[in-house]
Design a protein around this nucleic acid. Structure first.
Lengths: 175, 175
DNA sequence: GTTAGTGCAAACCTTTTGCAGCTCT
DNA sequence: AGAGCTGCAAAAGGTTTGCACTAAC
């Protein structure tokens, strides 16, 4: 299991396995993926209310630097936070629907091909690779088309419409 | 030239071509790529000292939303700012050396292949795609090997070395 | 017992917002 | 003329740092 392999890797390098790190590692491992620092912090706080947000950031940074987790942006669809996932699966691309926010993972040979070509083309040693794709998922494409049509009709009805209500911020507030 | 096509696209949509936007568009166009908001602001300030940083952000956001520029992170190698480039060239990956910071661009068929596979696999409509690769460039690989060797020798000489000097912050300060 | 790691508060960088006034068309 | 855009000041979001204390080894 992932947790063991990560803990082993840390122990080997003399990194201390504190209670806090154990909590965080377990959450990252079993929750799967696409956790951001804030969400991880909220979850960890339930297990240890004293655990500090800063520790979450420091732990994530350590794991990232050690090459044990990968950092994602998910096209900044929600905000500017970063997301993390363990480096267990095969390399994959993240496909984000810009309408509903659903994230799919794509595993496919073009990714390995890309890596190899970059290595041989530039004599480059690839350590990290990140592919993120944004667009509309199958479901949202039809909904989107309907929205656009409605907008056009609105525009015809009212050539000089009042200012549209501002869309609510997507960023989540801190508690 | 890019500037014309961008200005045309904006004019068509009734977006005003203000003096500020002309300055910014020209800089983005002729400077090429990989400008972040701050650098763009500094350059624009030389042409118009009154131009405000906020205008830079608003213009970049507008261009991004309009699909006229792409937003990059360059693996956050320098900091958390974003970089922008016009959407003129063929799709390409950005290859960043984590030691010297050099950025290479990779154009190759795996990218088109990837996009097509994602579209057909998920029935997804791809609007944006971003591939960023981090590692060591050919030149830095040898330097890096030397560094590691030196570090190992240091470790042998001094089993309990004093705390290493903290590496300087990579983020650039505002003027 | 050391040293690495933690919590807390405060800072930091990057980006966004509210609003009054200016300016393109 | 009037909506759209700008500048300014202030705030926000996300992350990092300094320092004294704590806990893992």
């Amino acid at each position: 299991m992932a947790l063991d392999s990560i803990e082993g890797s840390l122990k080997e390098r003399g990194v201390r396995l504190t209670r806090q790190r154990q909590i965080l590692l377990e959450l990252i491992d079993k929750t799967g993926e696409h956790l951001d620092a804030e969400r991880l912090f909220q979850m960890a706080k339930e297990k240890d209310p004293k655990l500090n947000r800063v520790t979450v950031y420091r732990t994530l940074k350590m794991l990232k630097t050690s090459g044990l987790v990968d950092e994602l942006d998910l096209m900044h669809h929600v905000g500017d936070q970063h997301y993390y996932e363990t480096r267990l699966k095969q390399e994959h691309a993240h496909v984000i629907c810009l309408r509903c926010g659903k994230v799919e993972e794509f595993f496919g040979e073009p990714l390995q091909r890309l890596r190899k070509q970059i290595e041989s083309h530039f004599g480059f040693q690839v350590l990290l690779a990140r592919t993120e794709v944004g667009g509309y998922c199958a479901h949202c494409q039809t909904l989107r088309a309907r929205e656009v049509k409605e907008l056009r009709m609105l525009a015809l009805d009212a050539p000089k419409p009042a200012m549209a209500a501002r869309a609510p911020r997507k960023r989540a507030r801190r508690s």
